[in-house]
Design a binder for these strands. Structure first.
Lengths: 202, 202
DNA sequence: CATGCCGTGATACACATGTATCATGCGAAT
DNA sequence: ATTCGCATGATACATGTGTATCACGGCATG
């Protein structure tokens, strides 16, 4: 069916218009009319392809998650082969930090959604915000193999350390978005911390 | 002048109504009418005491900052006398974490403002978001005296370490607010990290 | 050819929002 | 006692919002 792929293409076009607005002006500026204008379609079309605004928001959020996952996969493969646990951890964490245009865009848009979800208790929660959990368990796994490789002190608790790392990266990203420091400084802070973490057996 | 203190009292009453709404329903639900209803006054009064909505938002934000500073002062004095640098660092960081009703309230409300400020580029920025910077320099100072006391490795960079700590606490708070974990777990992660940090000379 | 459904447009509706306007009371100073 | 200015209430206004309705064209299927 040609119509089906047209459908999907339209939906993508509209959802990405929503994400573009969320990035540049925030989610609260992403009205149906604004999205329609940004996508270059009529308001009726937005209504047609996404019955309700909530549907549009959820669909766009899913696409945003996919974009982040794509980026992480790219950074992971760029970490070398075979990658050391430390290289993997560094790649994944640095990939999240808002250091380039794409990561800034993703971080800003995620933050917009985050603010929305805070007061809409579980309305969007079903979408699987579990992304943070899988990140932390991935980090914990790498830390464990690093311990087996002898590049990380066995005294560390992998899960807790992973949670701390994830939180620090989130906080650093927040500070960059807030204009408190730039992305490179945040990255420097992160790598400094990783240096301390992996200092073992020297 | 009695009228002057009445004025201030009214402003406080209205601004705190705004903060209450921002905490429970988010800032986007804090319309002038909602604030008026929450404060038990007429819409006209809110307009009268705060000419514009932006004025109300800024005033309430200033009060929120004062509340946080009060809380930090309380936790600092509770850290003992004379407090060790580590106790001070622990107190200040733990005080920020959303572990009890007050800190949850403050964190939630700050987050609401943060989301607002992200897309209103510097409209509220003048208010002095520098609170984060003073926190970090306070932490760095404590870390330096800890190094002089011999309780912290002199190899650490105090400023960078302080920035990392502040970011981690922010990120942990974010995860608690997002329902990813509870406040006590976040506190455990933080103290675990502080244990590692202050492991020196054993 | 007729029928009916899908995609699309223009427009309407009901409501919420920030702000402005008009009016009234009320205490104080002249 | 009158006048003036501050405090407060009721209400209006313009605008933006999400959603619903009506209408029309095209295309496939009977």
């Amino acid at each position: 069916m040609n119509t089906k792929v047209e459908h999907e293409e339209r939906r993508r076009q509209i959802a990405e218009a929503l994400l573009r607005i969320a990035d540049t002006q925030g989610l609260q500026s992403a009205s149906m009319r604004a999205v329609a204008a940004e996508a270059g379609v009529s308001l009726r079309l937005v209504q047609y392809y996404f019955e309700t605004k909530e549907g549009l928001l959820l669909d766009a959020l899913a696409r945003l998650g996919a974009q982040l996952q794509d980026r992480m996969a790219r950074w992971i493969t760029a970490a070398g082969s075979p990658p050391t646990p430390r290289a993997l951890v560094t790649a994944v964490l640095a990939c999240i930090l808002p250091t380039d245009a794409e990561s800034r865009r993703i971080a800003r848009t995620y933050t917009a959604y985050y603010a929305l979800v805070l007061n809409d208790p579980a309305a969007l929660e079903k979408h699987g915000t579990g992304q943070a959990e899988v990140l932390e368990s991935f980090l914990a796994k790498q830390l464990r193999t690093a311990q087996q490789d002898g590049t990380l002190s066995p005294a560390r608790n992998p899960e807790i350390t992973a949670a701390g790392l994830a939180a620090m990266v989130n906080g650093l990203g927040q500070s960059v978005l807030g204009g408190q420091r730039d992305g490179e400084t945040a990255l420097a802070i992160l790598t400094h911390h990783l240096d301390e973490l992996f200092t073992f057996g020297d």
